[in-house]
């Protein structure tokens, strides 16, 4: 392994000049986003610095309790983010609950699967593997879940007459909602399809480049990246299907009626 180049705070300050330049650009061109730019950059720095502290503490302990607690907090934030991305959220607790529980189920399943089969760290819940893995899977699953739910709710709202036309003719809710459900699942899964197609040609994924910068041989880093993309694809699929089918269930009832009154006003 070659020497790993460590970064000093001065190096970061130098890099931050680019953000300041962007803010200056916003001022000069009257884009009106200079404050948001600076706040976002500051948030990023604080969040990552905290993450560094938390991860250091977690890694030194390798306690199943603290690891699962950290995982829960990550899922909770992902759920909030997915809920905030909805144009027409479900009413009440469902708005947050459906996306969060779908992500939790999907990310937990896929992460545990990877930890117990492919990676097998000792102990299997070793936070040095579990937390970064969960983070990568969760981030992409969140995109899939929020795209899928958004496609479902706005698809049902705009195609209400078409869906109800089938219900009126005696179709079940499953038959009547099938076109909208299919379309929203397609929306949810397209980003990971595109990512996989472009990876290695257009984009070099962050994790792989990170490992290479850290001194890992490219052929080894590539294997990790392939595994991660498989896991992300699995998590996105499971999460999106759970969220979209759960949403379709919530927006219809036992009498096979379309219940758009269960969307938030």
């Amino acid at each position: 392994m070659k020497a790993y180049i460590s970064l000093g705070y001065g190096d970061l300050a130098l890099g931050s000049l680019l953000v300041l330049a962007n803010a200056g650009l916003s001022l000069a061109l009257q884009l009106g986003i200079h404050w948001r730019f600076l706040v976002a950059a500051a948030r990023m720095v604080v969040q990552l610095a905290l993450m560094g502290v938390v991860l250091s503490a977690l890694f030194s302990e390798a306690s199943p309790l603290w690891t699962s607690l950290a995982a829960m907090v990550m899922v909770a934030f992902a759920g909030r983010e997915a809920a905030a991305r909805q144009d027409r959220p479900l009413a009440g607790l469902w708005a947050y609950g459906l996306g969060t529980s779908s992500m939790m189920m999907a990310a937990a399943l896929v992460t545990v699967f990877a930890l117990t089969t492919a990676l097998r760290p000792d102990p299997w819940y070793d936070p040095r593997y579990a937390i970064p893995l969960l983070g990568m899977i969760l981030g992409n699953t969140m995109t899939g879940v929020s795209l899928g739910l958004n496609g479902l709710t706005s698809g049902l709202a705009t195609r209400r007459a078409a869906v109800e036309a089938r219900l009126m003719l005696g179709a079940s809710r499953r038959e009547a909602l099938a076109p909208v459900v299919r379309q929203s699942l397609r929306n949810a899964l397209m980003p990971i399809v595109n990512t996989m197609s472009a990876t290695g040609v257009v984009a070099l994924p962050g994790m792989m480049t990170g490992q290479i910068l850290g001194g890992v041989a490219p052929s080894e880093a590539v294997k990790y990246q392939i595994l991660i993309l498989f896991l992300i694809a699995g998590g996105t699929g499971i999460g999106a299907v759970a969220a979209v089918l759960g949403g379709a269930f919530r927006l219809t009832d036992h009498r096979h009626r379309l219940r758009l009154d269960r969307l938030a006003k």
């Binding site: 195609r159 209400r160 007459a161 078409a162 869906v163 109800e164 036309a165 089938r166 219900l167 009126m168 003719l169 005696g170 179709a171 079940s172 076109p179 036992h254 009498r255 096979h256 009626r257």
Partner: peptide
């Protein structure tokens, strides 16, 4: 009877019918 069974016997034609 189920909702679909009912609606196959009690049809409804809305003023602005939908198409899928």
């Amino acid at each position: 009877m189920s909702g679909p069974q009912w609606r196959r016997q009690v049809g409804y034609l809305p003023a602005e019918p939908g198409w899928w």
